[in-house]
Amino acid sequence: MATQNTKTLARLMMAPSVLLLLVWMIVPLAMTLWFSFQNYNLLDPSSDGFAGFFNYEFFYTDPAFFQSIWNTLVIVGGVLLITVVGGIAIGLLLDQPIFGQGIVRILVISPFFVMPPVAALIWKNLIMHPGYGVFADIANLLGLQPVDWFAQYPLFSIVIIVAWQWLPFATLILLTALQSLDSEQKEAAEMDGANFFNRFIYLVLPHLARSITVVILIQTIFLLGVYAEILVTTNGGPGYASTNIAFLIYRTALLGYDVGGASAGGIIAVILANIVAIFLMRAVGKNLDR
């Protein structure tokens, strides 16, 4: 894209897709914004018209509001921590020449292909169930009291399930990055007297920076809206212990039939997501340059 001519042409060629994306984004956003200022409750069709900031006030004063923001951040942060650390660890292991490497890699990737509600149900009924879950069996075997995961540690359980689903994604991205590390650089570091730990700190980790950034950014987008896993396991409870913003909106809209309130929640979620995005781009975005 060197000359003025090619630049103009490029803009022209990109215009349709940019326009499509813009419409795709603007229309739902505008409608949500519109509804968020309307009285629009399916149980009370008689009261309609402009509502001012009532919907926002309603959503904001919901006793679950601040907790759900906190829970959203805990889920995002917790899952990112587990998947990035775990992904690097598993990536390092898979990068070693081992017998049956191909099969092992496919096995490691497979959780990503399981649909979220299915994965959550398996975790709920086969793994974390206090009566016949695998964890309970292990606890019994050790003579311990089985843990009722979803009652005692609801948010932590959700984090574990979601992390299990996203670990393969992180592993895959980080493994490819590890494999692209120049082997002569590793050997040079070895000759320079760097042990495994130092090679990791000074060579591998800087090399992974960009991929880690990609993992963090992509996962954050999806983790802000975790929903299915909560719905089929804890249903947001006990109380609001495992309700995040997405789930709170669902509650307002489909359990409270309050479209206006839910729309206000949606707008708040969009603002929150943007705050997180700005924060993230400040923190790690520079790794994407160059």
Binding site: E184, E187, A188, D192, A194, Y202, P206, H207
Partner: peptide, 27 residues
């Protein structure tokens, strides 16, 4: 390798791309 007291110059140079020249030489 590190215990042999030898230094190697590789065909691809194998410099550490994220370090400055100073840090590369001082590594």
């Amino acid at each position: 390798p590190a215990a042999r007291g030898l230094a190697m110059v590789f065909q691809s140079y194998a410099l550490y791309p994220h370090m400055t020249v100073r840090n590369n030489i001082g590594f």
